[in-house]
């Protein structure tokens, strides 16, 4: 089982090394890989190395990490808020993080540390606000939380628009716009190392406390009576999920819907016990985003920003989920 969960995304990453605009034969890709890893002695054109090692590989790895982060944070938010209709995106975390990052681009001239810090801080603020709004009417908590997220999300989207309005139309605006749409195009290994820190901490943290998410999903009173320090457990889960989301948003912009679609596919496959669901979600999320990105970068000469494709897939899926929720008590 574990082997399958690891092998799946790894295989998809490998396959994506063969896909792209630059025409490379299968043997050329293998030779290039072998050469780069010191297994083969060959005369490799520098552009082949670029394409395989510097363009396709880092992009696929980063895509996998981003997909895993968004998916697992979605599953965790669903569990801890006992609400199948939420994800980092719907709770406003991605818009919040996007706003934080855009703010840092303008305020600190795009210094990496501040981008991450602001993305995380505003992501956290967004989820707290959504949660507070969601607890206003106790009668319909599921819907209220979603509505709270919609409100918070739209506030932060508006703030992002405000920033775009303020930003330099020549220099900063295109970078903010392109970045918000979500693209992994200029990923390099040094970016991966930096971006991996928050994403890995978030993903591994959630992976380790996945069983606690089951207990949290029973609600505050029962979870506490079962011996859980609810405040600490919930804070930790929100911390990890927001950290993973913010890390993903910082490298690839706002990519919608992954956090909603993937956990539900996971639920269909292995059920709702987070012990199994969380690892499966991580694996599926990683594979899914790499595949979508492969589609995005091969459909056209340039790239359709990822966010567009994931939304096109995710929106209709959300409608399906709502229908299913209504029909079967979800």
């Amino acid at each position: 089982m574990i082997a399958l969960l690891v092998a799946g995304p790894v295989l998809i990453i490998l396959v994506s090394l063969f896909i792209g605009r630059y025409p490379l034969s299968v043997s050329e890709v293998f030779t290039t890989l072998g050469f780069r890893m010191g297994l083969v002695q060959a005369d490799i054109p520098a552009t082949h190395l670029n394409v395989v090692w510097d363009v396709r590989l880092p992009r696929a790895i980063l895509g996998a990490m981003v997909g895993a982060s968004l998916a697992v944070s979605g599953a965790s938010f669903q569990g801890m808020f006992r609400n199948p209709l939420v994800s980092a995106n719907i709770l406003g975390v991605t818009s919040g993080a996007g706003f934080g990052a855009a703010l840092a681009i303008i305020m600190f001239d795009g210094q990496t540390f501040f981008i991450y810090l602001f993305a995380f801080a505003f992501g956290l603020l967004a989820v707290i606000l959504s949660y507070l709004i969601g607890t206003t009417y106790k009668a319909t908590p599921t819907v209220m939380l979603v509505l709270g997220g919609v409100v918070v999300s739209s506030i932060f989207s508006a703030l992002i628009s405000l920033l775009k309005y303020i930003a330099d139309p020549f220099d900063q605006l295109p970078s903010i716009v392109f970045w918000l749409m979500g693209s992994l195009a200029s990923a390099r290994f040094t970016d991966i190392v930096i971006a991996a820190i928050p994403m890995l901490i978030g993903v591994i943290g959630l992976l380790l406390m996945r069983w606690r998410l089951n207990v949290l999903s029973l609600g505050d009173i029962e979870a506490r009576a079962l011996g859980l320090n609810v405040l600490i457990a919930k804070s930790l889960a929100i911390f990890f999920a927001t950290l993973a989301t913010a890390g993903a948003v910082c490298v690839s912009g706002v990519i919608g819907w992954v956090g909603l679609v993937i956990p539900h596919i996971g639920r269909m496959l292995v059920g709702n016990n987070n012990e199994a669901l969380i690892p499966v979600t991580i694996s599926l999320g990683a594979g899914y985003l790499v595949i979508v990105d492969n589609i995005a970068r091969t459909l056209t000469g340039s790239e359709i920003p990822l966010g567009i494709l994931t939304s096109l897939i995710g929106g209709p899926f959300f409608i399906y989920l709502i229908r299913r929720t209504k029909a079967r008590g979800w």
Binding site: G20, V51, V55, P174, V177, M181, S186, R297, S302
Partner: peptide, 11 residues
């Protein structure tokens, strides 16, 4: 993208 034209890095 927006009002501008982009090429992919592979291109």
């Amino acid at each position: 993208v927006g009002n501008d034209y982009y090429a992919s890095i592979e291109q």
